[in-house]
Amino acid sequence: MEDLDLSQIDPLRRAEVRRRVEVLDRYLRITLPTTADAAVHAGQIGISVAQFYRLAQAWRIHRDPKLVGAGKRGGRRVRRDGVPSSAKRIVSAVMDDLGAEASQQDISREVARRCQGARIPTPSRGAMWTYIMDARATAPIRDDEPNRVVVGRLWVKLPTAHGGNSVFPQIALAVLLPDRLVLGLDVSCEHRRKASASMALARAFASMPSELDDVEIVIDPGDADDVAAVHLARLGTMPRPSKTSVSRLLSANLGRRLGGLVLMHRGHSSKTSGLLQARANSAVDCGTARAEIERAARAHNEILAEMRSAKI
């Protein structure tokens, strides 16, 4: 099969796209295909003969994988949360006043107080979480804070094959604050192997200019031994474990997405099976997962670079 550009196809559906392309190419290689041939090949894809004829013609002319019919997990659903626009304006105002890094509890408490004062319904806890996480991802870049590199772990909602099952990959990220740039990362697709904080930090150091050598490194206490050698080699000191929650810092600055991939701040907050129920979906291999995560980090950094350029 020719090399296909599947970069615009959902990673979970690329295997199904390849399979459908093989079916279409087998059919198109038949010199004088009959209706029976079309029926057999249509059945292999799971569509009617009439649909198959249209699909085969489109594939023969354009050879565009997006036309094969498995490029998206489904149309984006519009969730009607019943929250009045006036309440949403209050949420935005509170986020502006308290800052996106404020705790969800503090933001929710202030939103409830203002909504009660205005005699309008207070958004639900789920709606509040969505608003807060989205606001964190798009908040303006702050210039009034010292540089810090936060090193911690998250999970990516991308089912990845491992040992006959599937897992959500864990990633160790080194994020420069307040810029929110991802400077380094490491990926683990194995249940028992943590993503390496030291590798993420080493890659961050490799990409950092020398003027950032006085930057504070924020790490979890449990990672102090892991990053000690890397920290000592670059900064000449041993790392000091953070007294604040690294997970909360990452959550407050990245929100719920990284370059289009959904982030999870707890490893067991959902199961891979829910995303693999659709027939067209299949778990990706670890190499694909790693490539997708690295692509997402680059896209995330490019968006932030555009935000900073627009601010200047």
Rank of each mutant, 00 (worst) to 15 (best):
A127V: 02
D220V: 02
S166Q: 08
D144F: 10
A289S: 09
T130M: 09
A291Q: 14
R119T: 12
V246K: 06
L258V: 12
A118D: 11
A310Y: 08
R73Q: 13
S103D: 11
L98F: 06
R79C: 09
D37S: 06
P169R: 02
G274N: 11
L12E: 05
L154T: 03
A233F: 08
D220N: 14
R20E: 07
I45K: 05
R114Y: 07
R193Q: 14
A118T: 02
G152L: 00
D214N: 13
A15I: 08
Y53T: 09
P65C: 08
V151D: 01
A289I: 04
V182G: 03
A233N: 12
N165K: 13
A87Y: 01
D81R: 11
K88V: 10
A87E: 04
H62D: 15
V262K: 13
L176V: 02
V246Q: 04
D134T: 04
L28T: 05
S210N: 10
I120A: 03
D186S: 08
T34V: 08
K243A: 13
K271V: 09
L185Q: 04
T122A: 10
I217W: 02
A161P: 00
I45F: 05
N165F: 06
G164K: 10
D81F: 11
I120T: 04
C189G: 06
T272E: 09
G184C: 03
I293T: 02
P65M: 07
L6A: 11
V68E: 04
G164S: 09
N281H: 15
R192N: 14
L235C: 03
I312G: 15
D144K: 09
V91P: 03
A224S: 08
L258W: 04
H300D: 05
A137N: 02
S282V: 04
A39I: 10
A70R: 06
Q57N: 15
P221G: 06
R80E: 14
M264L: 15
P121L: 07
L154Q: 10
I293W: 01
A299W: 07
D37E: 12
